[in-house]
Amino acid sequence: MTTELPGPSQESVPSLLRPGARVFVAGHRGLVGSALVRRLSAEGHEVITRGRDRLDLCDAGRTEAFLRETRPDAVVLAAAKVGGIMANSTYPVQFLEENLRIQLSVVAGAHAAGVGRLLFLGSSCIYPKHAPQPIPESALLTGPLEPTNEAYALAKIAGIVQTQSYRRQYGASYISAMPTNLYGPGDNFDLETSHVLPALIRRFHEAGSSGAPAVTLWGSGSPRREFLHVDDLAAACVLLLERYDGDEPVNVGTGQDLTIRELAATVADVTSYQGRVEWDSGKPDGTARKLLDVSRLTSLGFVPQIALRDGIAATYAWWLAEQGAKV
Rank of each mutant, 00 (worst) to 15 (best):
K283I: 02
P304C: 10
V250M: 01
M178Q: 14
D310Y: 12
L17S: 00
Y183D: 05
I126C: 14
R117S: 09
T287N: 07
E11F: 01
F66H: 14
R117F: 05
K290D: 02
N181G: 01
E150K: 04
A74W: 11
E278N: 10
K156G: 01
Q10N: 03
L57P: 14
L5E: 04
T298R: 14
G20S: 09
S299G: 12
S12G: 13
K290L: 13
V23C: 06
A207R: 02
L228D: 05
A80S: 13
V303E: 15
P19R: 01
R117W: 14
V107K: 02
A79M: 06
E150H: 05
S138T: 15
A321P: 02
Q162K: 01
W319I: 05
E4Y: 01
Q133W: 03
G114P: 15
R52S: 13
A214L: 04
E43D: 15
S105F: 11
V32P: 03
A264H: 14
E150F: 03
L291H: 07
E98M: 05
S222W: 00
D293R: 00
K290R: 12
A131R: 09
I160L: 05
A112D: 04
Q164D: 04
D257L: 05
R101N: 09
P179Y: 10
G311M: 06
A214Q: 10
L145K: 06
L96D: 01
L154H: 03
K290W: 09
N88Q: 15
G20R: 07
E248F: 05
P72K: 02
D310F: 12
V115Y: 06
T315H: 07
R29K: 14
L191I: 08
S209Y: 02
F120M: 02
L141V: 13
S138P: 12
A264Y: 11
Q162L: 12
E46S: 15
V23A: 10
A79W: 03
S295L: 01
L31D: 08
Y152N: 02
P92E: 09
G275C: 11
A79Y: 03
A265M: 12
G114C: 08
W218H: 07
C125E: 08
F189M: 02
L118Q: 07
S124E: 10
G109A: 08
F66T: 00
V32H: 03
A172D: 14
L140A: 08
P185Q: 10
A42R: 15
G20A: 03
V230Q: 06
E69Q: 15
L104T: 06
P249Y: 00
V107L: 08
R38F: 09
R18I: 01
V76H: 06
Q274V: 14
Q169Y: 06
N251C: 02
A42I: 13
S9M: 11
G253C: 10
G275Q: 13
P128W: 09
S176N: 07
G44E: 05
S176Y: 05
E322C: 08
E242F: 05
G253M: 04
G208E: 13
R54Y: 11
Q164L: 04
P304H: 00
E43W: 14
L258E: 06
V106H: 09
G33E: 15
V76Y: 00
A199I: 08
A35N: 03
D245C: 08
R261D: 00
E242D: 00
L154V: 08
N149H: 13
F95R: 00
R52V: 10
A26R: 04
G171T: 04
G324L: 01
D269G: 11
